[in-house]
């Protein structure tokens, strides 16, 4: 090739300045979380206790696990508004299934195991249905999942006659350790959250599938022209989120042993907020699982701190959450 000095690239100094900027934006959520934790400790020293930390992390687990799946969907340029309703319906169906099986199978442990598996399978199937409607049916994801948001919750309300679906006591006794037991001082839901997050980060950053998800969200046409099977990847993304909802639900059921029409209300917004606060763009293309995890923790820390103090009027709780979300978004905004 001819040796010339044309098409001059920007010199390295410029590059470095830009990457510093992007690093700042990456640490935005962490910075926000650290500041919140300092504030929490100052307001109530109990905030910094191990027990409280575990409480917060355990609580975060449901939303966090769903948010990891949501992160994939949002990066691919999609959205899923139905996750809260889906969780509630899966919980209800799984409880009904287990109660029914308990009549014919005499081993509660087996029944619970079947219930747990059913939870993940149901989630995957619901997600698959979303994916197929969106790709084959060519319907906007917003509309598809807005539709199922209503459908899932209506069916739960129907199954429960508007009341609660409650797990049999014997099954509940067998199942509840899944939520309440700790392994090496860390509750099981937190372990599961950790595993899902690590697996999510690996899949997103270190597999061809993850790269394709980013490619589709960044520019679907380019991905299509680059021989990426766009429809299949999208379907897989929604199925993955469904499975995450299933996992979250199988941890949720043993907590209260019931599902009611108010279960999982607004989880979709919390999960989406966790993803976005964590630095993923709502328009898709790129995002981070670690950011999402931090975003989810951050959101539950806010309400935890508010519960641990009486400094702020209870009427203003929602306002405080709003302010913190906006401030964190400001810290991590793109230049």
């Amino acid at each position: 090739m001819v040796d010339r000095q044309l098409d001059q690239p920007a010199p390295p100094r410029f590059q470095r300045a830009r990457s510093l900027g992007s690093r700042l934006h990456a640490v935005g959520p962490i910075l926000g979380l650290v500041l919140l934790c300092v504030a929490g400790t100052l307001l109530n020293p109990d905030f910094a206790s191990l027990d409280n930390a575990m409480n917060v992390l355990t609580r975060t687990a449901f939303i966090g696990i769903i948010a990891v799946g949501m992160c994939f969907v949002i990066i691919s340029g999609g959205i899923d508004l139905s996750v809260g309703s889906m969780a509630a319906l899966i919980a209800g169906m799984v409880i009904l299934l287990m109660n029914t099986l308990a009549g014919s199978i005499d081993q509660p442990v087996l029944v619970v195991a079947i219930g747990m598996a059913a939870s993940v399978v149901l989630g995957g199937v619901f997600g698959l249905a979303h994916g197929l409607l969106i790709t084959r049916g060519r319907i906007e994801p917003f509309i598809v999942t807005l539709g199922t948001l209503g459908i899932f919750r209506a069916y739960l309300t129907y199954f429960s006659n508007g009341g609660a679906i409650t797990l049999d006591d014997t099954l509940s006794d067998v199942y509840s350790p899944v939520y309440y037991t700790s392994v090496i001082g860390v509750p099981i839901p937190v372990w599961v959250f950790l595993i899902v997050a690590v697996a999510g980060a690996l899949i997103l950053n270190r597999t061809a599938y993850g790269r394709y998800v980013q490619a589709i969200g960044s520019n679907e046409q380019v991905a299509r022209y680059a021989a990426v099977n766009v429809d299949r990847i999208k379907v897989m993304t929604y199925a993955l989120l469904g499975a995450c909802v299933g996992i979250a639900t199988l941890l949720y059921v043993p907590r209260l042993g019931s599902s009611s029409p108010t279960t999982g209300l607004l989880w979709e917004l919390e999960a989406i907020a966790a993803v976005i606060v964590g630095g993923t763009a709502l328009k898709g293309g790129s995002g981070s699982i670690i950011g999402t995890v931090i975003g989810a923790v951050l959101l539950s820390v806010i309400s935890n701190i508010l519960n641990l103090t009486s400094v702020i009027s209870v009427y203003l709780n929602a306002a405080v959450q709003g302010f913190v979300i906006i401030i964190v978004a400001f810290l991590q905004r793109r230049k």
Partner: peptide, 14 residues
């Protein structure tokens, strides 16, 4: 139920 669970957890911490 879920919100009550969280609020009570935090009362117990506090």
């Amino acid at each position: 139920r879920d919100d009550a669970f969280k609020v009570m957890q935090d009362y117990l911490t506090r």
